[in-house]
Structures are given as structure tokens and as C-alpha cells.
Nucleic acid binder design. Structure first.
Lengths: 147, 147
DNA sequence: CTTCATCGTGTAGGTGCTTCATCATCTGCT
DNA sequence: AGCAGATGATGAAGCACCTACACGATGAAG
């Protein structure tokens, strides 16, 4: 097995472990990965119509309806009429939703700190740019495959 | 945003892109990620009882039943009686299944080569060990959370 | 030979995703 | 103003992946 294949294996191992870690962390606060993405967006963008969420998440609007259904049922968001478009539903964080969403942001910082603890700033920067290169290459492959 | 957070963002970006790339590649040969894992195992381990697959995949045996149902329906595997245990079903690759599974192995090599093309051997090794460190740390977090 | 563990699967259900159809509303063009 | 077509959200139907629980069949150990 080549060095590149070994490195790829480590990437896959990392992705698998990260997914497990994030899924279990989210479950502890009553969230799933997909629903947490919605909260994340709402923190970043503020109250948004569902179609905007669908575009940002790269999923169908129908799917956002379902995700928001779950978040609404669990008290994280509410649907409110959009003042500028009577067709649209503006999804808005409840106080509890904002609390949990802020926890997500904090959790991300904590995870970053744990992952790179004890590494010099230069090392972290270097790892970051390596990862950026890899990510860009995979994205290019995806774009190529799609186009 | 700290350097660590920026690096973590690149990890997440990489995982997202990789998932998209792999999912679409697999779809082209009529496979889903979960079903491809089963094929991958069958290549590595040879014909296996379903309970062994469940343990290796870290999912419930019931789930393996469903995955094998799909693979069987699509002609990738067959269920055969286990000669040493009449309760067990030995899952075996069909010729077509083996062909596709060999393609998966080849695809992984190709992807590794594309990802690390143009990088020196030392650089690839270095990236690999960085990734290994990160993966180990995340796995430690997962184990801690589970325990 | 009885008891207990194990293998696979039926049933039921939750989540995430899709396509297609539909209704209400918005928008641009005449 | 009025109409045609685009757009926002959702119902219906369906697939993939996963779970827990229950059960029948078989294995293994006393």
C-alpha cells in the first residue's frame, strides 16, 4: 500500500471518528446532524425563509420542511410569517434554540482546541493549509463528476 | 477565529466533499455507502456470516439483514448455508459482486493518487502522520464519551 | 436433555433524503 | 388591471439506513 493510500486511510478514519463524536455530542442535546446544520445557519444568518435554508444546505425545500418540523416539535425554532412574502415561512430560533445553538458554536471551539492541543501555531497553520489543499482537490473532483 | 478552528473547518470541509465524492462514485455502480462497506469486508474477509459483518461494521445484526437484502436483490452477493452452523447465512460475493468490489479497491487507489498528486513522498508521509494524530485524538474523545 | 446463548429475521418506528403534484402567492409583461 | 409563469411550502409516496423488541431455530454446555 502506497503512502498516499495510507494517508487516505487516515483521512477516512478521521472522518469516521469525527462523525461519531459529533453525532453523539449532538444527541446529548437532542439534536441530529442535519437539524444542527439548520440551527447553525440560523445563528449565522438570522431568521430565514425555508427556501434560503434549502439553498444553503444544498437539499430540497421539501427536506427543509421536515427538518424544521422536527426542530419546531422539539421547541428549538418557530415558524413565523414572512413580512415581505406571504408564501414564505420565516424560521426563527426560540430562546432555547438559541441557547442550544450557542452551545454548538462553543462545542466547535472546544473540539478545535482539543484536537490541536500542544501543537505549535506554525504546525497548526501548516496542517490547516494541507487540509485546505486536500479539500480543494476533492471539491474539484466532485465538481468535475457533477458537471 | 483561531488557527485551530480554521483547521477544524478544513477538516469538516474535507469530510463533506469526500462524502459527496464517494457517494456519487458509488451510485454510478449501483451502490450506497453502507452496502459498499459490506462488499469491502467481503473482499477482505471472504464469505462471512452476517453476525460477523454486523460486528465489523458496528451495526445491529438486523441492519445487516437489510443491507444484504439489497445486495442480494441487485445481484452482488448470495446467501448460502454455513456448513458449520445451520443457523448462519454465509454471505458470498457473486462474480459480479467481486468485479464491482475490485473496482472499489481500485477506485480507492485512484483517489489516493489524485489527492496527493505532485506532493513529495516526505510531504505525503508528513500529512499522513498529522492525520493519524488527529484521528487518534478524535477516537479518544469518542471512547471517552462512550465509556 | 434441559437450559441458555446465539443467528437471522418479522414488526414497528425514527431520521434524512428524493420526486411529483398542488395550492397560494409573487412578479413581470402586455 | 390582468394574466402567465416562476416561486414558497407542503402532502403523498417511496427508498436507504438505522434502532429496539420479539420470536423461531439451532448450538453448546451442564
Amino acid at each position: 500500500m502506497s503512502a498516499a493510500e495510507r494517508a487516505l486511510d487516515q483521512v477516512l478514519r478521521l472522518t469516521l471518528a469525527l462523525e461519531q463524536d459529533m453525532t453523539s455530542s449532538l444527541a446529548r442535546v437532542g439534536l441530529t446532524p442535519a437539524r444542527s446544520h439548520v440551527l447553525w445557519l440560523l445563528v449565522a444568518e438570522g431568521p430565514s425563509p425555508q427556501v434560503a435554508l434549502a439553498r444553503a444546505l444544498d437539499v430540497t425545500p421539501r427536506n427543509v420542511t421536515g427538518l424544521v418540523d422536527g426542530l419546531e416539535r422539539d421547541g428549538f425554532v418557530t415558524r413565523e410569517p414572512d413580512p415581505s412574502d406571504r408564501r414564505a415561512q420565516r424560521v426563527t430560533l426560540t430562546p432555547r434554540g438559541r441557547e442550544v445553538a450557542d452551545g454548538l458554536v462553543a462545542g466547535r471551539s472546544t473540539l478545535a482546541a482539543q484536537l490541536f492541543a500542544g501543537l505549535s501555531a506554525e504546525r497548526v497553520e501548516s496542517i490547516g493549509s494541507d487540509l485546505e489543499l486536500l479539500a480543494a482537490r476533492v471539491e474539484a473532483l466532485v465538481a468535475e463528476a457533477a458537471g
